[in-house]
Amino acid sequence: MIRPLAGMARVGLRFQLAYRSDVIMSVVALVAQVFLLRMIWTALYGGREHDPQGLTLEALLAYLSLANLQAFATTPIIPRIAHFRIRTGMVFFDLSRPTGYLPQMAAFQAGHTAGGLLMLAPAVPVVLLVGTITPTEHPIGYAATLALGYVISVMMSLLICVIGFWTLETAAISMLYRLVSHFFAGTMVPLSFFPGALGVLADALPFKYMGYVPAAVYVGHLSGGQIGQAVAVEVGWIAALAALLWAMWRRAHRRVVIQGG
C-alpha cells in the first residue's frame, strides 16, 4: 500500500521539478505580489496612530507574506491532472491500478507540493525579508494548523477531481475554486478586516485554514484557546470532508466514462 503511493509521490515531485522555469517565474510573481501588498498596506496604515483590528503594521506585513507563501505552496495541481486524464481517457490507467484512485491523487499532490517547497526554498529568505518576518511564539500551533489546513486543501481538490467524473469538464470550476479559495483564505486582506456578512461567510468557510488561520497564529493575532479551537474545527472539517469524499467516490467510480481515441 505504501510503496505504490511513494512512487506516485515521486512522480508528483518530478512533475513539479520538470517545469522549473514556470516555477521560477511564479516565484518572481510571488515576490512582486508580496511587494505590492506591502506597499499598499503601508500606504493604508500611513495616517493611523492606533492599530486597526489590533494588528500592528509589522504583524500585518508578516501575516501577508506568510499567507501568500502558504497559498503558493499549497495551490493544488491534481484538479488539472485529473481534468486532463478524464478528458483523454487516460484515467483508465489510474483506475486499473490496485491502489485506490483518491490515495493515488493525494500522494501525487503531496509529492508535487514537496517539489514546490524545494523550488521555493531559495525565495523564502527574500520573501521573509520583504515581509519582515520574525520567529513565532507559537511554532507548534502554527505547524499544527498549517498541516491540518493543507490536508483540508488536498481534500477539497480531491472533491473537484471527483466532480469531474460527472461533468467531464472542470477547467472553469478549478479556476473559480482558485479565485474563491485565495480570496477567502485572506491572502490579500486578513479575515478580521472583512465587513459584516462577508466576514461571517469567510469565517464559516474552510478556506481560511489554508491562509489566514496559520498565518494569524504565527504572528500572534490568534493565540491560546483560539489555536486549540481552530485545530478542533479543522479536525471536524477533515472528518466531514472524508465522509463526503467517500460517499461521492462510491457513486462516481460507478459512472466512469472512458473517453477513448
Partner: peptide, 9 residues
C-alpha cells in the same frame, strides 16, 4: 474590503 476600514489609499 480594505476601504471599509481605511478611507483612502
Amino acid at each position: 474590503v480594505v476601504m471599509h476600514t481605511f478611507p483612502a489609499i
